[in-house]
Amino acid sequence: MIGAVKRLLGQAQPGDPPPRPAMIALAGASRSFDDGAIVALKSVDLTIDAGECVAILGPSGSGKSSIVNLLSGIDRPTGGRILWNGTPVASRRAWARLRRQEIGIVFQEFHLLPTLTARENVEIALMGHAIPGESRRARAETVLERVGLGHRLDNLPHALSGGERQRVAIARAIVNAPRLLLADEPTGNLDSANTAAVADLLFNLQRDTGMTLVLVTHDEHLAARCRRCVRIRDGEVADDRVLATAVVPPLAVRREAAS
């Protein structure tokens, strides 16, 4: 993480120890559909270091959601590789384990299970962790309180507003304390008030925990709150730069850089 910060701050010096591998990287990753008739990504190279806050920007159909799908392993590249800590992740089982322990995902459509309450929707992300039911329940409640939904624990998704649903989805994504949080247009279905609330929540979480945040958006203002901005156009990385005017860097990163 220090290496990433030094690179971000332009402080890398000759003689420094070799940089650690990126937390996650796309190495020549391609994704096409219908036997190649539709190309979503064209041999994309993208590395993301631990603790980074990265915005992936691009118009609809540019391939930015495909990047999130590949970074989370919920989709398979048709070409290239995805590396986690420098090691290719190949099997479905390995990806499932990473999503269970290391990677949280937030979707534009919330993707909550309609028959489960807010608490249960969070709890299901803890199933398979050998955690007793009571502890699971307590952890789900703690996280929901953290996202401001302590009073909505037993509500079904249909009884929640769009903003509340997205906060439940965020709670579900962070309940396992992931190191990487992928948010695919998390404010795409929200009004401006909820957009601000959800965005604040995500950035505060990233700042407080030091987790890596990859935010897919087409909202320039939202992207401007990230330190790094990757622009995707026609399935390729059109631009990848560190924003000079980025909002205050994450607290945890600053602490690590200073150490």
Binding site: I74, R99, H111, M127, G128
Partner: peptide
Amino acid sequence: TREIGIVAAIGWSDTR
């Protein structure tokens, strides 16, 4: 299908 996709996306194993 969507719900199965959701639980797979949050890390449920194929076995589960």
